[in-house]
Write a protein that binds this DNA or RNA. Structure first.
Lengths: 120, 120
DNA sequence: GCATCATATGAACAATTGTTCATATGATCC
DNA sequence: GGATCATATGAACAATTGTTCATATGATGC
């Protein structure tokens, strides 16, 4: 996949030089996978709602579930995914776990999405 | 879902006032869906590769397939999705269809993803 | 210790997704 | 007209995903 040589598959219509240039300038495979992974995680309504709500205040799991009117288990599963992608962080206080956005960088990415839909 | 009143489901741990405030500040359901939809479309390696390559030069479908070393049909299906989300545009020249990014706004969103993975 | 509460996790299920194969469309050239 | 080429699309399939239900963990208070 990350071969930069011009081993272009033979088709009638291809423009070999263009393809060769395009291939040599491509993003590395692992970068592509990482970007796609982050966007995929952001590509779910429940997770967007979690990030939206957490962008305004820290909340415990139970409050998140009540706010989004969803089951505690569903929220907890999604928080695990968001945690794994370093999009949210949490602190324990007794039995409760209080979640918030991991850093402002997440907020920027999230708001960029907002800007995009308003732009269309 | 977009009810702003305090009809919080009864659970022991919830903090009603917090939940009430959180609920009243939530993004509208259709905004959530739109943001999630855009991010979901960006959350696929093939589509990321297409956008990456198109961010550098205009390409026809056949060249895209050769560059990404994938079938013409697969690329065409993905281009349809990207077109539907106004992420790419195209022009016809005889038998060929030349694709490019729809506007700079798409590039910004894409590069924001790049920045994010480099930041982690 | 035991009971209770808040959260996490595993299994199962329906729903969605991306690719492939086969075929349709629509333009060019003879 | 017919043949060929570039692209688009429909159906089918495996793979992935998000939720639910049931249960596990781990802390608190008795």
């Amino acid at each position: 996949m990350q071969n930069t040589e011009c081993d272009v598959c033979e088709q009638h219509c291809t423009h070999p030089q263009t393809v060769c240039q395009a291939r040599s300038a491509m993003l590395a495979e692992d970068s592509v996978m990482k970007i796609a992974e982050i966007f995929k995680i952001l590509g779910d309504p429940t997770r967007i709602k979690v990030l939206d709500v957490l962008s305004k205040r820290e909340l415990c799991v139970c409050d998140l579930a009540a706010t989004l009117q969803m089951g505690q288990s569903a929220i907890s599963h999604q928080l695990r995914i968001l945690r794994g992608a370093r999009l949210v962080k949490y602190r324990r206080e007794g039995k409760e776990a209080w979640y918030s956005l991991d850093d402002e960088h997440v907020l920027t990415l999230f708001q960029q999405g907002l800007e995009h839909i308003n732009h269309i």
